[in-house]
């Protein structure tokens, strides 16, 4: 992996900062007319999720990180690890709890997800923006109650609990926005 100078920084670039791979969430070139050039970067540590801002001088550089995002298919969980497969090569990858984290509640076998690899190891799992999951448990639906009214909790097949409208019944398949964890509609 090479070095990249601060003048070449771009949003989405992955670099090593203090030993961890980080994503450049936002890059801004700052230069007073008569002064030094700086590059102001909003960074996200891909291992810890920490987001912070760092400013680089124009002659500073950073080591690029061997990080890439790959589309994979979710196979199964053995209780300890989550297993994924690259559909074109059939190559399998196992991700641990740290990498899967919050995403675990949206993983349905056979779904396409994005795996972030660092030195060929999964460090993050990003589910699709929308998933369709079955309701396994909720209070019985209220007849005649349409879009108006309150909400109730529903447990989905993956174990996730979301707020749903009162008219939803057990066994229905719902469309959920994984970024907010909110009910969108019936699937």
């Amino acid at each position: 992996m090479g070095n990249v100078s601060s003048g070449q920084f771009k949003t989405g670039m992955k670099v090593m900062i203090d030993g961890d791979p980080c994503n450049m969430v936002e890059v801004e070139f700052v230069k007073p007319g008569k002064g030094q050039a700086f590059t102001r970067v909003r960074l996200r540590n891909l291992m810890t999720g920490r987001i912070w801002e760092r400013t680089f001088k124009s002659n500073e550089s950073a080591e690029t990180a061997d990080v890439m995002d790959r589309d994979m298919e979710y196979l199964y969980s053995d209780g300890e690890m989550w297993h994924f497969m690259e559909p074109s090569t059939f190559e399998q990858y196992a991700a641990d709890e740290n990498a899967v984290a919050e995403s675990a509640q949206w993983l349905k076998e056979g779904d396409k997800v994005m795996i972030t690899l660092f030195n060929d190891n999964p460090i993050a799992v990003t589910p699709p923006n929308f998933v369709e999951l079955e309701v396994t448990e909720t209070d019985p639906g209220l007849k005649g109650d349409t879009a108006q009214g309150g909400s109730k909790p529903a447990t989905l097949s993956t174990g996730a609990v979301v707020r749903v409208p009162l008219f939803i019944n057990q066994g229905e398949v719902l469309k959920i926005d994984t970024r907010t964890g909110e009910y969108v509609s019936r699937a």
Binding site: P32, G35, F38, R40, W52, E53, R54, T55, E60
Partner: peptide, 25 residues
């Protein structure tokens, strides 16, 4: 003044660099 808002790992003994940082950031 800068450190609570922005991490800067470089060193610079030109005072103007720091004045420019405070001004621009």
């Amino acid at each position: 003044l800068i450190e609570p808002h922005f991490e800067c790992s470089f060193t610079d003994d030109r005072k103007d660099t720091w004045l420019e940082l405070v001004m621009s950031h």
